[in-house]
Design a binder for these strands. Structure first.
Lengths: 209, 209
DNA sequence: TAGAAAACAGACCAACTGGTCTGTCTGGAA
DNA sequence: TTCCAGACAGACCAGTTGGTCTGTTTTCTA
């Protein structure tokens, strides 16, 4: 079972174990996760890392560039590890999806107060800044492509009905997952996520031959 | 077919047709819809309405109180008109849901660039301010309660299978809708919403006897 | 080991932001 | 006609914010 450690353990951002750039990235991610990009404050990152402005602006040209780097290097990577790669653990894609969904909820990868970092940023920034939007879109595309690929091979191996529109199904699955995390986040109640998981399984089973 | 006009027509906020308080509320809603609550600027509202600070702070004690009023009086009311009330137009709740989803997408009620105002605010503010969170939660609860009530009477009228967990189904339906709008928003493509609608119908049909 | 380049410290700044405060105008009650 | 409260104008303010710039230290390389 894979998991993203930085969700579980709050790494000491003052320590020397990571490079300065990595410390800035990780702290910026946490601030963006809680307050959004617009709500993130440069000074707050400096306080938490113990760095000064000179250091931060040596590694990143602007707040915007830092935000972009967080999407590409932190959020994208995390999403890949938790939601994409484990899809290939089982031959049966529907079983794999069920497992991924459950593991994500159980392992502490999902913060049910802060929600999904990718969806948070998508809802906040997509109408405001096209740089964020295209980067987020790229992540969603790789996720969708993986789902579609898995469903296609599932069709070949008789795990999935041959008559379904795999692209449409993949989109709906993704929407359901993001929606489930979003609802649970506002309710601050993991139970909502689990309930949606059960009904998502009902839907997934309806895709079986 | 119901629809929220303020989505379709940009009312002139400088005119005298509305009360000052209503003009502030409506303009604040538009700013929040695009930039979020934290991204909304008081000065921007003043410019768009042609009012001065004295006027705004005469009607609202603070930016936060204005934000709360927008949730309660604008967003809550809009959501009720578009998503809740039309659920009672058909005897068959699953047919009603399909119609509501399609009408919302067709009538221009949903802005596929700005997304769902309620979900936007939920994702942005729920971890930051409990006042927003509880107000948003109240709106979701009335929506959920209506869905559950409709599914229950649907069970009585043999439109819905008797063995399903109506609460669980209602939660999943809500998550799917918000997820669909969210995906379409980041992609800036209504097609994703429509695709999710088709698969949502597949799911809804699986709830029939 | 000299010197150049990278990595950082920290003072400084202009623009912005929410909010306050005093004063003015207007319509209705007495 | 007087008086007063609600509605609004607009100058003013203190704190914040992203960002710049100069100088110092550290590290790597020739």
């Amino acid at each position: 079972m894979r998991c993203c450690l930085n969700y579980l353990f709050s790494i000491d951002m003052q320590s020397e174990s990571l490079t300065t750039r990595q410390r800035i990235l990780q702290t910026a991610f946490e601030e963006m996760h809680r307050h959004g990009f617009q709500g993130m404050r440069i000074d707050s990152i400096l306080t938490k890392t113990g760095l000064k402005k000179g250091a931060l602006y040596h590694h990143f040209a602007s707040k915007l560039e830092l935000g972009y780097a967080v999407v590409d290097e932190v959020i994208g990577e995390q999403g890949r590890l938790v939601w994409v790669e484990p899809l290939f653990d089982h031959d049966d894609p529907l079983l794999a999806l069920e497992t991924v969904f459950r593991n994500a909820g159980d392992s502490g990868c999902i913060d049910f107060i802060l929600g999904c970092p990718l969806n948070n940023l998508a809802q906040e920034m997509s109408p405001v800044d096209s740089g964020f939007r295209t980067r987020i879109q790229a992540i969603y595309q790789t996720w969708l492509a993986a789902l579609i690929e898995r469903l296609r091979t599932g069709q070949k191996n008789q795990h999935v009905r041959a008559d379904i529109d795999v692209g449409q199904c993949a989109t709906f699955i993704l929407a359901s997952i993001e929606g489930a995390i979003g609802l649970a986040k506002n309710a601050q109640d993991r139970e909502l996520y689990l309930q949606c998981g059960k009904q998502l399984n009902e839907y997934l089973n309806s895709l079986r031959p």
